[in-house]
Design a protein around this nucleic acid. Structure first.
Lengths: 244, 244
DNA sequence: GGGTATTTGTTCGTATGTATT
DNA sequence: TAATACATACGAACAAATACC
């Protein structure tokens, strides 16, 4: 009666890798369903007959792959596959969430009026130093953070925007107050990277789960730039869909 | 004369984190220029007055962030910042690379004719089991791998596609042989994740650098689906730009 | 609310294997 | 071949966060 799961020592493949592959198989096979708690490090090191460090190396790999979530003092859990969709181009955040039947919220983290720096000015098509309004927001769907964003607007065109946004909680609704019935996405740049400390905290993700970083330009019916936005999306919770 | 760099012990911040932050600062400040070799783990553990394991933990963090490249037996080097751009929507790979003045190559890794599985069939708008041609490709810009892709085509419409692609090395040029002068992108889905083993190898990236995974549908002038493509892009080398 | 047990996180030490130069 | 440098693995101890009573 050996409770150990046999690993091949001295073969070409590291023990920690054999362990992570065994656990990955078990997770994919449903031995540990989504949300389930995994055995503790101590129990696993007992089961596999290795040092706790070796188990920890394997767990780090699984966390990196997004298969498990680890919390100090709590334990290790099979990652809850959270799916979500979003749309590009001409759609709005609240509209999107409504289509997905999700409770939407756009939280205002911070706001300021600043002088446009070089890159911001170029995207907004104003001269550097022109006053711009910056709104830092965090979006939620069903209570889970989806994205962080910094929205930049030409201050001259949108006096009192911050208060209006505080009322409406929506960029689209705020634009409407200024007579902008429609606006469209001129361009979106997408890249991917690992999150910085702020993103990890505010998006509630671990440091090994990538974010999609976007730069977006919105223009009014006349083609004038009304908003430049820098966003980062929790890639585990969202997929960007561009239709054209 | 203490050659140690002072760390604060017993403060709230782990030693390995202080070390990775110190090295990150040095790299960003140009103390270690891109491509430069970093001191060995032994030298760093001496400098910071910690165990080599603690240095290794810090190095793992920097590698995860993409700041350094580590190779067994060789040493540790500051990551060479490779930049590249790409475009979305109605443009073509070779056209893109020409605009960026980069040497483009689309390498055929594998090809096969298969029966369409459920998801593939749905996207290609054919019934499941219909024969489809699959082309697995790898794209390069200036010799560096940019992306991997699996392209699916309805086999009935494109007899002999594989040989034609082998000749032309281009999807667009192959389509032209079948009388398709133009085709457009109907939809693109974008997500981000960490690369699997195959992607790590073929894209020549480490396991901590994210890839952008895309699903794309191309249609001809009549709106019929001519191609469904699954790609993964090395996010360190490319940025996706969607214009609309 | 508070103390205790549990569980993961950090750090040290040591030994040996493997890839590169 | 020898030296160097990173990779893996074991053991021990304490810290920090959480859960439980």
């Amino acid at each position: 009666m050996n409770s150990h799961t046999s690993l091949s020592r001295g073969a070409g493949v590291a023990l920690w890798r054999q362990i992570s592959e065994a656990l990955e198989r078990e997770i994919r096979d449903g031995v540990h369903p989504a949300g389930a708690r995994l055995p503790t490090e101590a129990e696993l090191s007992e089961r596999f007959g290795v040092n706790r460090h070796t188990v920890r190396r394997a767990m780090a790999e699984l966390e990196e792959q997004g298969l498990i979530d680890v919390t100090q003092g709590r334990g290790t859990f099979v990652h809850l596959g959270a799916i979500a969709y979003l749309i590009g181009r001409r759609t709005r955040f609240h509209e999107n969430m409504r289509r997905e039947n999700r409770a939407a919220r756009l939280e205002l983290l911070e706001s300021a009026t600043e002088q446009a720096s070089g890159p911001i000015a170029r995207e907004l098509e104003v001269t550097a130093g022109t006053p711009v309004i910056r709104l830092d927001t965090r979006s939620h769907a069903d209570g889970l953070p989806l994205s962080l964003a910094s929205h930049y607007f030409p201050a001259a065109r949108f006096p009192g925007l911050v208060e209006i946004f505080r009322e409406t909680g929506s960029v689209t609704a705020s634009f409407a107050r200024f007579g902008i019935a429609d606006y469209t996405r001129r361009r979106t740049r997408v890249s991917a990277r690992l999150p910085d400390a702020r993103e990890q905290r505010l998006l509630e993700i671990t440091r090994t789960r990538p974010v999609m970083a976007t730069e977006a330009i919105n223009v009014d019916a006349e083609g004038a730039v009304v908003e430049f936005g820098l966003s980062s999306f929790a890639s585990d919770r969202i997929q960007l869909v561009f239709e054209g």
